[in-house]
């Protein structure tokens, strides 16, 4: 078996509540990403996807209390010194964020910002840097890279900006690219182009991708494995074909029923009745139980573990584990 590239174990992220307590918004999350693999994380907005991703680069807000382990190439990311984590950012793990409109510094040229990513880690001579910036821009399909490098972010369209952002993330050939809802702010045709770009990069450079989305259709078209999160917990985890064709967890089933079609703008997944629980006071037993149509006695009494339902396929549900009674 290959060693995982990223291995998250028992990750817990909590914020102080006004009442003086701690509200865990990510609670006991564990999963792996193998080298060169594309893994999706899906879940409703607020389920803790972004925070999980940010923890991998020590990018959490200062108020957040983190525990657990995030192994990357054998090192615990959470324990790295400020200096070491800075060296890892962009080279080992790079990130692309949701909103390409606000991800670039508006007063610096796009080429400068991509060049900065190169400068920080290897400080190439000016000419080499500029050549590499042009190369990166054409790699992500930006025409006239020479001219576009000199332009400012506001002179780019949304889709172009997301491409440039991806180019910036790829600048130092990272082993893992974390893309946090990279297409949510874009319109559908552009979404498709960006996803195709990501797949292309994965195939060409072998960069593993952790793709965060609330759009399960995106997962279907791109990922090999998918992790489903609900209320700060992983509720299902397995190969895409299995999870999407035979979902084990009622939440995943509900997600699939509410799947937005690829030819429509991606909306929030609101088709499931009810609200996710307040992280400060989760319901007793299974966290999905108040909204679950199949809930039974044990579900309100005891929280199910995340256990294998098939080889390589885990679910956190008494029913799926055959232990509902």
């Amino acid at each position: 078996m290959t060693e995982p590239l990223l291995s998250v174990r028992g990750l817990r992220i909590a914020f102080p509540t006004p009442a003086g307590g701690q509200a865990p918004v990510v609670d006991g999350v564990s999963f792996d990403v193998l080298p060169g693999e594309i893994v999706g994380i899906v879940g409703e907005s607020g389920s803790g996807k972004s925070l999980t991703a940010r923890a991998a680069l020590q990018l959490l807000p200062p108020r957040a209390a983190v525990s657990g382990e995030i192994g990357f190439e054998g090192r615990d990311v959470l324990a790295l010194s400020p200096r070491d984590i800075r060296a890892l950012r962009g080279t080992g793990i790079a990130m692309v964020f949701q909103d390409p409109m606000t991800s670039f510094n508006p007063v610096l040229r796009v080429g400068e910002q991509i060049g900065e990513a190169l400068d920080i880690h290897r400080a190439p001579p000016k000419q080499a840097r500029e050549a590499r910036v042009r190369e990166l821009l054409s790699l992500v399909g930006i025409p006239e890279p020479e001219r576009r490098a000199r332009a400012y972010p506001h002179e780019y369209s949304g889709g172009m900006r997301q491409r440039a952002l991806t180019a910036m993330a790829m600048a130092n050939a990272p082993r893992l690219l974390i893309a946090d809802e990279p297409t949510t702010a874009l319109d559908v045709t552009v979404q498709d182009q960006i996803l195709r770009l990501m797949r292309g990069l994965n195939e060409a450079s072998g960069t593993a991708i952790l793709l965060i989305t609330h759009n399960i259709a995106v997962v279907a078209s791109l990922c090999r494995r998918v992790i489903v999160m609900y209320a700060g917990r992983v509720v299902e985890d397995g190969p895409v074909e299995q999870v999407l064709t035979a979902p084990s967890h009622p939440y995943t089933q509900a997600l699939l029923q509410s799947v937005p079609r690829i030819d429509q703008p991606a909306g929030r997944l609101t088709a499931i009745a009810g609200q996710p629980p307040d992280p400060a006071s989760p319901p007793p037993g299974c966290r999905f139980q108040p909204r679950c149509t199949q809930a039974m006695g044990r579900c309100t009494a005891e929280e199910p573990p995340l256990d294998a339902v098939a080889p390589g396929h885990r679910a956190r549900c008494w029913l799926a584990l055959g232990q509902a009674a």
């Binding site: 962009g90 964020f97 670039f104």
Partner: peptide, 14 residues
């Protein structure tokens, strides 16, 4: 507090 600060931090900027 802008997003681009987070993006730059993720690049490894000091």
């Amino acid at each position: 507090n802008q997003d681009f600060i987070l993006v730059a931090t993720a690049k490894g900027v000091s």
